[in-house]
Design a protein around this nucleic acid. Structure first.
Lengths: 200, 200
DNA sequence: GTCTATAATTAGATAGAC
DNA sequence: GTCTATCTAATTATAGAC
């Protein structure tokens, strides 16, 4: 997984892995923008300024490239930890802040990428569902411990999906151009209500 | 619709328009299931048991077929009216109930169809945004009249999108298999809070 | 590692017979 | 109205030269 391997070899750890990285970066961008099916390998290659054949050389198939682009190795998880690091009464606030801050940082984040592809691509849907379940829903449910914990966690899920689609995919105003603080202000209490609000 | 058109009717309406309807029905189904780009004309023709050429004969282009499939002429609007028909304090409840009841009725409803296609297809996104804005957001905002009406209406939008994606597209449990009443019970107050809840 | 060339497949669309 | 046949273009993917 090292960026540069085998320092023993004299000369160039120069342009091999660099192209691979550029392809990967471009792939995330385009997959995130148009979804899996609507994004062609050729378009990625062109945007990354490499030959289409190189893409297959490095990643084998289009699906392989997508899988590599999706790999959320360490990028998101640390941010997610901060959600669960704190009191239960400000959990809603932290969920919204963490989500929006991280997605704002880069639109080519795997979550947006998957959310774009999920409606069209069955594999993306499975991946997205699994990720959300494992990293968020299940942990929230465990944290709550109430009988209706699963339903409450799922309601948070609805908030996350709705917010992601509205702000990053459909860019609905004024959601799309609101500040992070404003969104936290508005949706924080809403999420909090989902989690710890009244009604059994 | 009659499956057999074998009445030896002289002249007019034999089986011409019937094929058209079958194509349309199938198109709604497949577009709604896989989105615009991932659905091929050939696949629709095969499922409708007609020749691919017929599709072009009737609708000209794939885009034309999609447009025809999307035509929400009178199908949804009457249901939407019921949302605005009643007191402001039970508005949230009616939004959720109307949404879920209508979408449950048939998964190939234009709203689901568009929501599936929007992430991948720019035209679908524009259509969906325009529809939601005109039929729901704008009217809710007008009804509220508060300074932050637009933001509040947009928040309802987030609920609608999130709920649609969670229940009909990603089928997230237990949202997907909850009863209408349970969803109204849970999300009604949430939507109501978006509309008339505290905070300026 | 990188590129050229190309195979194999599939898509949207048209012409024209019946 | 319906179908056969076909065109054109674009796609994923491979083989092989340099």
């Amino acid at each position: 997984m090292a960026e540069d391997d085998t320092h023993g070899r004299p000369g160039r750890w120069r342009s091999g892995a660099e192209s691979k990285q550029r392809i990967l970066r471009t792939a995330r961008e385009l997959f995130g923008e148009h979804g899996y099916r609507a994004t062609t390998v050729r378009a990625i290659a062109a945007a990354a300024e490499v030959d289409p054949a190189m893409v297959f050389y490095f990643f084998g198939t289009k699906q392989g490239l997508f899988g590599a682009a999706i790999e959320m190795s360490g990028a998101v998880p640390p941010a997610i930890e901060s959600i669960f690091d704190g009191g239960l009464d400000t959990l809603g606030e932290r969920v919204v802040r963490t989500l929006v801050e991280n997605l704002d940082k880069s639109g080519r984040t795997p979550l947006v990428l998957l959310t774009r592809s999920a409606p069209t691509d069955a594999r993306s849907e499975a991946l997205l569902r699994e990720f959300i379940d494992r990293e968020i829903t299940d942990r929230l449910a465990a944290l709550l411990g109430t009988p209706d914990a699963a339903l409450r966690a799922a309601m948070v899920n609805v908030q996350i999906l709705g917010l992601t689609v509205a702000r990053y995919i459909m860019r609905i105003e004024p959601i799309a151009s609101s500040s992070v603080d404003e969104l936290v202000d508005r949706f924080g209490p809403l999420v909090q209500h989902c989690l710890t609000g009244p009604r059994a």
